[in-house]
């Protein structure tokens, strides 16, 4: 128990020392530098940006971002600097080139295929046989061809009645 206590005190001392030494090499960041570091992945963390991470590497990277900006580098040059060293995966906003094109285009292709499937579904349904059409018309009476708003209200009432009867059927079963 006593050993634990001593260990705990020692650990506590180490911990309070860490921020001390860390503060020395951390810098005040401009809004631009904050924005840039939020667009960089912290290479040693799980899913955090350089801005939000407390890792030492992220601190160093924040400092480099600020220094480069102070030296007059443009935003793109700062990004290039990190891409040269860590690869393109460092960017949180993936570029629209090379292999990353598959990332950007897949959702578009997905939506296009979905729309296509939907389109064929719609056009297929465009040639109803007369008998089916007749039966469907008799089964759902909430047809509104009229332009009158009172017709619309009648439809709401009709909907409400439908709900009631639907419920009655359910509770009867």
């Amino acid at each position: 128990m006593k050993r634990k206590l001593i260990m705990g005190i020692l650990l506590g001392m180490v911990v309070t020392l860490i921020p001390l030494s860390a503060l020395a090499d951390d810098v005040q960041m401009s809004p631009k530098a904050l924005e840039i570091s939020n667009n960089l992945n912290c290479p040693v963390c799980e899913g955090q940006s350089v801005r939000d991470s407390n890792a030492q590497l992220a601190r160093d990277m924040r400092r480099i971002v600020q220094e480069r900006l102070d030296e007059g580098y443009t935003e793109d040059e700062v990004y290039d600097y990190f891409v040269d060293r860590y690869g393109v995966g460092i960017l949180r906003n993936p570029p629209r080139s090379g292999f990353f094109l598959t990332l950007w285009w897949a959702p578009v292709v997905g939506i296009a295929i979905g729309a296509l499937v939907l389109g064929t579904f719609l056009t297929q349904r465009k040639k109803p046989s007369t008998s089916q059409k007749a039966s469907s018309e008799s089964s759902t009476p909430d047809d509104d061809q009229s332009d009158d708003l009172s017709e619309y209200e009648a439809r709401i009432l009709q909907d409400l009645d439908d709900n009631d009867s639907y419920r009655n059927e359910r509770s009867d079963r």
Binding site: N39, R92, N93, F100, T102
Partner: peptide
């Protein structure tokens, strides 16, 4: 996917989702 084809894990950050 990128690890399978490219050997590196290419992370996808919030900007992608915001835009899509």
């Amino acid at each position: 996917v990128s690890e399978l084809f490219r050997d590196t894990k290419l992370m996808v950050g919030p900007p992608f989702y915001d835009q899509v």
